[in-house]
Simulated scan of single mutants.
Amino acid sequence: MSVVHDLVADMTAEAASLDDLVAGLDSADWATPTPAEGWTIAHQVGHLWWTDRMATLSATDPRGFDDMLGVAANDPANFVDDGAAEAAQIPPADLLARWREGRATVAEALVSVPEGTRLAWFGPPMSAASMATARIMETWAHGLDVADTLGAELPPTSRLRNVAHIGVRTRDFAYILHGRTPPTTPLRVELTAPDSDDIWEWGPADADNRVTGPAEDFCRLVTQRRAPDDLDLVVTGPDAIEWSQIAQCFAGAPGTGRAPRGSTSTAGHR
Protein backbone atom coordinates (compact mmCIF):
# COMPACT_ATOMS: atom_id res chain seq x y z
CA MET A 1 0.00 0.00 0.00
CA SER A 2 1.10 3.57 -0.65
CA VAL A 3 1.80 6.14 2.04
CA VAL A 4 -1.49 7.85 1.22
CA HIS A 5 -3.42 4.59 1.62
CA ASP A 6 -1.77 4.00 5.01
CA LEU A 7 -2.60 7.52 6.16
CA VAL A 8 -6.18 7.28 4.95
CA ALA A 9 -6.50 4.02 6.89
CA ASP A 10 -5.31 5.85 10.02
CA MET A 11 -7.71 8.72 9.25
CA THR A 12 -10.60 6.29 8.99
CA ALA A 13 -9.65 4.52 12.21
CA GLU A 14 -9.32 7.80 14.13
CA ALA A 15 -12.78 8.89 13.03
CA ALA A 16 -14.20 5.50 14.01
CA SER A 17 -12.77 5.95 17.51
CA LEU A 18 -14.68 9.21 17.92
CA ASP A 19 -17.77 7.64 16.33
CA ASP A 20 -17.73 5.04 19.11
CA LEU A 21 -18.03 7.89 21.65
CA VAL A 22 -20.97 9.68 20.06
CA ALA A 23 -22.97 6.93 18.36
CA GLY A 24 -24.92 5.99 21.47
CA LEU A 25 -25.60 9.49 22.76
CA ASP A 26 -29.12 10.79 23.21
CA SER A 27 -30.10 13.74 21.05
CA ALA A 28 -29.98 16.05 24.06
CA ASP A 29 -26.40 15.05 24.79
CA TRP A 30 -25.23 16.56 21.50
CA ALA A 31 -26.03 19.99 22.92
CA THR A 32 -23.59 19.51 25.82
CA PRO A 33 -20.93 22.26 25.96
CA THR A 34 -17.36 21.05 25.40
CA PRO A 35 -14.07 22.57 26.63
CA ALA A 36 -14.07 24.62 23.40
CA GLU A 37 -15.74 27.90 24.21
CA GLY A 38 -19.16 28.15 22.54
CA TRP A 39 -18.95 24.69 20.98
CA THR A 40 -21.17 21.73 21.82
CA ILE A 41 -20.58 18.11 20.85
CA ALA A 42 -22.68 18.85 17.76
CA HIS A 43 -20.33 21.70 16.83
CA GLN A 44 -17.33 19.40 17.16
CA VAL A 45 -18.75 16.69 14.91
CA GLY A 46 -20.30 19.26 12.59
CA HIS A 47 -16.95 20.94 12.13
CA LEU A 48 -15.33 17.64 11.21
CA TRP A 49 -18.08 16.91 8.70
CA TRP A 50 -17.75 20.41 7.23
CA THR A 51 -13.97 20.12 6.94
CA ASP A 52 -14.16 16.67 5.35
CA ARG A 53 -16.47 18.19 2.74
CA MET A 54 -13.99 20.98 2.07
CA ALA A 55 -11.14 18.48 1.72
CA THR A 56 -13.22 16.44 -0.73
CA LEU A 57 -14.01 19.57 -2.71
CA SER A 58 -10.33 20.48 -2.91
CA ALA A 59 -9.43 16.97 -4.08
CA THR A 60 -12.20 16.57 -6.64
CA ASP A 61 -13.21 20.05 -7.79
CA PRO A 62 -10.33 22.57 -7.63
CA ARG A 63 -12.36 25.32 -9.30
CA GLY A 64 -15.19 24.80 -6.85
CA PHE A 65 -12.74 25.02 -3.98
CA ASP A 66 -11.30 28.25 -5.40
CA ASP A 67 -14.84 29.67 -5.29
CA MET A 68 -15.05 28.58 -1.65
CA LEU A 69 -11.79 30.41 -0.91
CA GLY A 70 -13.41 33.53 -2.32
CA VAL A 71 -16.34 33.12 0.05
CA ALA A 72 -13.96 32.58 2.97
CA ALA A 73 -12.05 35.74 2.09
CA ASN A 74 -15.20 37.79 2.66
CA ASP A 75 -15.30 36.83 6.35
CA PRO A 76 -12.10 35.00 7.28
CA ALA A 77 -12.58 35.46 11.03
CA ASN A 78 -15.94 33.66 11.14
CA PHE A 79 -16.04 31.43 8.07
CA VAL A 80 -15.04 28.21 9.82
CA ASP A 81 -17.07 28.89 12.95
CA ASP A 82 -20.16 29.66 10.89
CA GLY A 83 -19.81 26.31 9.14
CA ALA A 84 -19.68 24.51 12.49
CA ALA A 85 -22.62 26.49 13.86
CA GLU A 86 -24.73 25.70 10.80
CA ALA A 87 -23.90 21.99 11.02
CA ALA A 88 -24.74 21.96 14.75
CA GLN A 89 -28.36 22.81 13.89
CA ILE A 90 -28.80 19.54 12.00
CA PRO A 91 -30.66 16.85 14.01
CA PRO A 92 -28.01 14.64 15.64
CA ALA A 93 -28.97 11.41 13.87
CA ASP A 94 -28.81 13.16 10.50
CA LEU A 95 -25.52 14.87 11.36
CA LEU A 96 -23.97 11.57 12.40
CA ALA A 97 -25.08 9.95 9.14
CA ARG A 98 -23.73 12.85 7.08
CA TRP A 99 -20.40 12.77 8.91
CA ARG A 100 -20.09 9.04 8.26
CA GLU A 101 -20.86 9.50 4.59
CA GLY A 102 -18.45 12.44 4.35
CA ARG A 103 -15.65 10.41 5.94
CA ALA A 104 -16.05 7.68 3.35
CA THR A 105 -16.15 10.22 0.54
CA VAL A 106 -13.02 12.09 1.56
CA ALA A 107 -11.15 8.82 2.05
CA GLU A 108 -12.00 7.75 -1.50
CA ALA A 109 -11.12 11.18 -2.85
CA LEU A 110 -7.68 11.33 -1.24
CA VAL A 111 -6.51 7.90 -2.40
CA SER A 112 -7.56 8.92 -5.93
CA VAL A 113 -5.45 12.09 -6.06
CA PRO A 114 -2.68 11.72 -8.67
CA GLU A 115 0.81 11.54 -7.18
CA GLY A 116 2.51 14.92 -7.11
CA THR A 117 -0.74 16.90 -7.03
CA ARG A 118 -0.90 19.82 -4.61
CA LEU A 119 -4.30 20.42 -3.08
CA ALA A 120 -5.44 23.97 -2.38
CA TRP A 121 -6.39 24.71 1.22
CA PHE A 122 -7.16 27.59 3.56
CA GLY A 123 -3.47 27.59 4.40
CA PRO A 124 -0.61 26.55 2.09
CA PRO A 125 -1.36 23.93 -0.61
CA MET A 126 -0.55 20.37 0.41
CA SER A 127 -0.21 16.86 -0.91
CA ALA A 128 -2.90 14.22 -0.45
CA ALA A 129 -0.68 12.63 2.23
CA SER A 130 -0.44 15.92 4.13
CA MET A 131 -4.19 16.44 3.81
CA ALA A 132 -4.84 13.01 5.29
CA THR A 133 -2.39 13.74 8.10
CA ALA A 134 -4.17 17.02 8.82
CA ARG A 135 -7.52 15.20 8.96
CA ILE A 136 -6.07 12.71 11.46
CA MET A 137 -4.79 15.57 13.60
CA GLU A 138 -8.04 17.47 13.60
CA THR A 139 -10.21 14.42 14.19
CA TRP A 140 -8.09 13.42 17.16
CA ALA A 141 -8.11 16.94 18.63
CA HIS A 142 -11.87 17.37 18.38
CA GLY A 143 -12.34 13.82 19.57
CA LEU A 144 -10.34 14.68 22.67
CA ASP A 145 -12.70 17.58 23.36
CA VAL A 146 -15.67 15.23 23.11
CA ALA A 147 -14.00 12.64 25.34
CA ASP A 148 -13.22 15.30 27.95
CA THR A 149 -16.85 16.41 27.85
CA LEU A 150 -18.18 12.91 28.40
CA GLY A 151 -15.60 11.97 31.02
CA ALA A 152 -14.51 9.22 28.65
CA GLU A 153 -11.16 7.97 27.45
CA LEU A 154 -9.87 8.32 23.91
CA PRO A 155 -7.19 5.64 24.08
CA PRO A 156 -3.92 6.90 22.55
CA THR A 157 -2.56 4.82 19.69
CA SER A 158 0.37 4.82 17.30
CA ARG A 159 -1.76 7.05 15.05
CA LEU A 160 -0.57 9.91 17.23
CA ARG A 161 2.73 9.77 15.39
CA ASN A 162 0.91 11.49 12.52
CA VAL A 163 -0.23 14.27 14.86
CA ALA A 164 3.22 14.65 16.36
CA HIS A 165 4.79 14.81 12.90
CA ILE A 166 2.57 17.65 11.76
CA GLY A 167 3.22 19.35 15.09
CA VAL A 168 6.98 19.33 14.50
CA ARG A 169 6.63 20.32 10.86
CA THR A 170 4.56 23.40 11.71
CA ARG A 171 7.12 24.95 14.07
CA ASP A 172 7.88 27.85 11.70
CA PHE A 173 4.17 28.24 10.90
CA ALA A 174 3.39 29.00 14.55
CA TYR A 175 5.95 31.80 14.64
CA ILE A 176 4.69 33.32 11.41
CA LEU A 177 1.12 33.29 12.73
CA HIS A 178 2.28 35.34 15.69
CA GLY A 179 4.25 37.78 13.55
CA ARG A 180 7.58 36.47 14.81
CA THR A 181 10.67 35.35 12.94
CA PRO A 182 11.13 31.57 13.15
CA PRO A 183 14.39 30.59 14.84
CA THR A 184 17.09 28.87 12.83
CA THR A 185 18.34 26.82 15.75
CA PRO A 186 17.91 23.03 15.47
CA LEU A 187 15.18 21.43 17.54
CA ARG A 188 15.18 17.90 18.94
CA VAL A 189 11.87 16.22 19.74
CA GLU A 190 11.90 12.82 21.47
CA LEU A 191 8.54 11.28 22.32
CA THR A 192 7.57 8.04 24.00
CA ALA A 193 5.02 6.14 21.92
CA PRO A 194 1.71 5.57 23.73
CA ASP A 195 1.39 1.86 23.01
CA SER A 196 4.98 0.58 22.93
CA ASP A 197 8.49 1.34 24.18
CA ASP A 198 9.37 3.05 20.91
CA ILE A 199 10.87 6.53 20.88
CA TRP A 200 9.75 8.83 18.07
CA GLU A 201 12.50 11.25 17.06
CA TRP A 202 12.81 14.42 15.04
CA GLY A 203 15.82 16.71 14.68
CA PRO A 204 19.53 16.31 15.47
CA ALA A 205 20.38 14.36 18.60
CA ASP A 206 22.84 17.03 19.81
CA ALA A 207 20.42 20.00 19.57
CA ASP A 208 20.36 22.24 22.65
CA ASN A 209 16.67 23.08 22.19
CA ARG A 210 14.65 19.99 23.06
CA VAL A 211 11.16 18.74 23.82
CA THR A 212 10.84 15.29 25.38
CA GLY A 213 8.03 13.33 27.01
CA PRO A 214 4.89 11.33 26.22
CA ALA A 215 3.69 11.58 22.63
CA GLU A 216 0.13 12.14 23.79
CA ASP A 217 1.11 15.22 25.79
CA PHE A 218 3.10 16.62 22.87
CA CYS A 219 0.05 16.19 20.64
CA ARG A 220 -2.06 17.96 23.23
CA LEU A 221 0.44 20.81 23.14
CA VAL A 222 0.56 21.33 19.38
CA THR A 223 -3.23 21.06 19.03
CA GLN A 224 -3.66 23.45 21.99
CA ARG A 225 -5.83 20.97 23.91
CA ARG A 226 -3.97 21.51 27.18
CA ALA A 227 -2.05 24.38 28.71
CA PRO A 228 1.72 23.77 28.63
CA ASP A 229 1.88 23.71 32.43
CA ASP A 230 -0.56 20.77 32.50
CA LEU A 231 1.67 18.55 30.38
CA ASP A 232 4.39 16.10 31.35
CA LEU A 233 6.90 17.48 28.87
CA VAL A 234 10.48 18.53 29.46
CA VAL A 235 11.27 21.62 27.40
CA THR A 236 14.83 22.93 27.39
CA GLY A 237 16.49 25.78 25.53
CA PRO A 238 15.10 29.30 25.00
CA ASP A 239 13.76 28.66 21.50
CA ALA A 240 12.04 25.44 22.51
CA ILE A 241 10.48 27.18 25.50
CA GLU A 242 9.23 30.04 23.34
CA TRP A 243 7.79 27.63 20.78
CA SER A 244 6.00 25.61 23.47
CA GLN A 245 3.99 28.72 24.33
CA ILE A 246 2.74 29.30 20.77
CA ALA A 247 2.87 25.84 19.13
CA GLN A 248 -0.04 25.36 16.72
CA CYS A 249 -0.46 22.76 14.00
CA PHE A 250 -3.89 23.76 12.69
CA ALA A 251 -4.63 26.38 10.04
CA GLY A 252 -6.30 29.69 10.78
CA ALA A 253 -5.65 32.58 13.11
CA PRO A 254 -3.44 32.15 16.17
CA GLY A 255 -5.24 29.98 18.67
CA THR A 256 -5.90 31.20 22.18
CA GLY A 257 -4.96 27.88 23.72
CA ARG A 258 -6.47 26.39 26.85
CA ALA A 259 -6.38 27.72 30.35
CA PRO A 260 -4.61 25.58 32.98
CA ARG A 261 -6.84 22.94 34.46
CA GLY A 262 -8.72 24.19 37.49
CA SER A 263 -8.84 27.71 36.08
CA THR A 264 -12.21 29.38 35.42
CA SER A 265 -10.89 31.10 32.31
CA THR A 266 -12.54 30.42 28.96
CA ALA A 267 -10.78 28.38 26.29
CA GLY A 268 -10.26 28.55 22.57
CA HIS A 269 -11.68 25.89 20.31
CA ARG A 270 -9.79 25.40 17.06
Score class of each variant (00 low, 15 high):
Val4His: 08
Asp6Leu: 03
Thr12Gln: 13
Ala16Glu: 15
Ala16Val: 10
Gly24Leu: 01
His43Thr: 05
Gln44His: 01
Asp52Ile: 04
Leu57Cys: 10
Gly64Trp: 12
Phe65Asn: 11
Asp66Gln: 07
Asp67Cys: 07
Met68Lys: 10
Ala77Arg: 06
Gly83Arg: 08
Ala84Ser: 14
Ala85Leu: 09
Pro92Phe: 00
Asp94Tyr: 04
Leu95Pro: 03
Arg100Ile: 04
Arg103Ile: 00
Ala104Gln: 14
Ala104Thr: 15
Leu110Arg: 08
Ser112Thr: 04
Thr117Val: 11
Gly123Phe: 00
Met131Gln: 15
Arg135Ile: 15
Met137His: 06
Trp140Ala: 08
Gly143Gln: 01
Leu144Val: 09
Leu150Ala: 01
Ala152Ser: 14
Glu153Trp: 01
Arg159Leu: 11
Asn162Val: 15
Ala164Cys: 06
Phe173Asp: 13
Arg180Pro: 02
Arg180Gly: 01
Thr184His: 01
Thr184Phe: 00
Thr185Ala: 12
Trp200Asn: 13
Trp200Thr: 09
Arg210Leu: 04
Gly213Glu: 07
Pro214Trp: 01
Asp217Tyr: 02
Asp217Cys: 03
Val222Ser: 00
Val222Pro: 02
Arg225Ile: 14
Ala227Gln: 08
Ala227Ser: 12
Gly237Ser: 07
Pro238Gln: 06
Pro238Thr: 08
Asp239Trp: 07
Trp243Ile: 00
Ser244Val: 00
Gln245Lys: 12
Ala247Ser: 09
Gln248Lys: 03
Ala251Gly: 10
Gly252Met: 07
Gly255Arg: 07
Gly257Trp: 14
Arg258Asp: 01
Arg261Asn: 10
Arg261Met: 11
Arg261Pro: 08
Gly262Ala: 08
His269Ile: 06
